[in-house]
């Protein structure tokens, strides 16, 4: 009986340990802790080029993450990218004339959407569209423009 009891106790402890490890992986190692905010509201924005922006890329304001990109679609009539963002529920005072830019973290890093607040007293609501956008800066284009300008100067 004693041996049986020991087996049951150690098996119980083992299962708890395994579940704790899984929980640790889910909450501490992966993004589950951040993704779970199911509430919040949606905003959309159109960009002529999103570069390498991806679903789940961060949306920031003043460098603080306030949401994530939820989906990226293509508007086939206007040939633009349609980006839907989910903004955290607590951030409910984004002015209507806010500017959405696609920035790059570091020279070659991930791209993210940076919001620059405008001065309007009216706030964006669920489903609204951010009208003022600026597309991603593409390295190739920048280099191309730079070389073109240099050539023009020297010529």
């Amino acid at each position: 009986m004693g041996k049986r009891h020991t087996i049951e106790v150690t098996v119980g402890a083992f299962v708890v340990l395994g579940v704790v490890a899984l929980f640790f992986l889910a909450m501490q190692v992966s993004n589950l802790s951040q993704a779970s905010s199911g509430d919040g509201y949606h905003l959309t924005a159109r960009f002529s080029n999103i570069g390498s922006l991806k679903v789940r890329s961060p949306v920031t304001m003043a460098g603080v993450r306030i949401g994530r990109v939820e989906s990226i679609g293509f508007d086939k009539t206007r040939y633009e990218a349609l980006v839907t963002m989910r903004i955290d529920a607590g951030i409910d005072s984004i002015p209507e004339d806010t500017f959405a830019n696609i920035f790059t973290a570091g020279l070659l890093g991930e791209q993210y959407i940076g919001l620059e607040p405008g001065g309007s007293p009216d706030f964006l609501r669920d489903g609204d569209e951010i009208a003022n956008t600026q597309s991603a800066l593409l390295l190739e284009q920048m280099i191309g423009q730079f070389l073109f300008k240099k050539a023009g100067e020297s010529g």
Binding site: G18, A21, L25, Q28
Partner: peptide
């Protein structure tokens, strides 16, 4: 799966 999870967690 429990052993694999423990392995990964301890590894991290």
């Amino acid at each position: 799966p429990l052993l694999a999870a423990i392995f990964s967690a301890v590894g991290v």
